[in-house]
Amino acid sequence: MDILETDAYDRRHRRNVSCALFFSLVPFFLSTAAYFYLWTPDSPPSIMSAGVKSAPVLLLAAAVLGWNGGQSILGVVGGLIFSAVGDGCLIWPELFLYGMGAFAVAHLLYSISFLSSRYASYSSSGSSSWIRLLYLIVLIAGVGFYIFLYPFLLKLPNSDMLVPAVGIYVALISLMGALAIRTQHMPTLLGSLIFMVSDLSLALQVFKVMENMQHGNIIVMVTYYLAQLLIAVGDMKAVEDKDDFSKWKRS
C-alpha cells in the first residue's frame, strides 16, 4: 500500500510540476503569437521591431531563471539573453556580424550548460557506439556545410571578415549540437538540432546560396523559436529529473 501511495504521490507531483512549467511558459507563447501577428518583414528596422522579436526569448530566459535560480546564468539563461541580443542586431543588416557574434556566445554558453552535472544522469552511457556515430554525423555535417558555403562567402563584399567568422560560428554550433547529443535528453537534443536547421535555412538566404524562399523567413523564425523553447524546457526539466534520478539511486 505504501508503494501504491508513493507512486500516486509521484504522479500527482509530476502533473503539478508539468502544469507549473506550462504556466511559466505562457508569456513566451503569447509574445511569440504577438510577434507573428505584428510581423511585417518589409518594414524598416526599428527599436520596436527589435523588441518584439527579442521578447519571446527574453521571456524564456526569465522562465528558466525563475525555475532554476541562478545556476543557469552561465548556461542556458545566459545563452537565451545573448540570443535575444542577436535577434535585435539582426533587425539591422549592417549589424549582422554583431548578431552572429552574440549567437556564437549563446552556443558556447549552451555547450557549457550541457556539460554541467544537471545533465549527468542522461550521459552515463555516452560512450556507446551510436552516440559516437551521431557526434561524427553532426561534426561532418558542420564541416561539409561550411565547405559548401565557402565559395558563396567569397563573393560577398565583406568576405575577409565573413569567411573566418562563419567558420568559427559553424564550429561552435556544431559543438553545441554534439554536446546536446551527449546529454541524451530529448528536448535538449531536438532543440539543438532544430536550431542548426534554422540557421541552415537562414544562411542559405543571407549568403545568396539560393533565392529567397517563399515563406522562408517564417520557416526560420518558427524553427528558431521552437528550438529555443525546447532547449529552455530541457534545462528546466533537467533539474527536476536529476532530483528524481538522485532519489532513485538512494532507494
Rank of each mutant, 00 (worst) to 15 (best):
P44R: 06
N68W: 03
A102H: 05
D42H: 10
A84M: 15
L97K: 03
L90N: 07
F28Y: 06
L90A: 07
S54C: 07
G75D: 07
F103E: 14
Y37N: 03
G69R: 15
A55K: 05
S46A: 12
A102M: 09
W39H: 12
F103Y: 15
A104Q: 01
V64M: 06
S43I: 03
D87K: 01
W39Y: 05
P45C: 12
G101H: 14
Y110D: 01
A50M: 15
Y35M: 06
A102W: 05
F103C: 07
A33H: 11
S43T: 03
M48K: 06
V57W: 02
G70D: 08
N68A: 10
L58K: 06
W67F: 04
G75R: 00
A104V: 14
V105N: 08
L30N: 08
S72P: 01
L65K: 11
L38I: 13
G88V: 03
Q71E: 15
G86M: 12
S31F: 14
G88F: 11
P41Y: 13
A63E: 00
Y98Q: 11
G101W: 12
P93G: 11
P27E: 10
A63G: 06
L95F: 13
V52R: 11
D87T: 10
I47P: 04
L65E: 05
Y35G: 07
A102N: 10
A84T: 08
S111R: 11
Y110P: 05
L58W: 15
F28N: 01
Q71W: 12
I47N: 14
A102E: 09
C89A: 05
G51E: 01
M100V: 07
I112W: 03
N68E: 12
L90Q: 04
F36H: 13
M100D: 02
L59A: 08
V26I: 15
T32G: 02
G66Q: 10
A104N: 09
Y37Q: 09
P45H: 06
G70I: 11
I112P: 01
F36P: 02
A50W: 00
L108I: 12
L90F: 08
P27W: 00
T40C: 03
G79M: 03
N68C: 13
Q71S: 15
A62V: 07
T32S: 15
S72H: 07
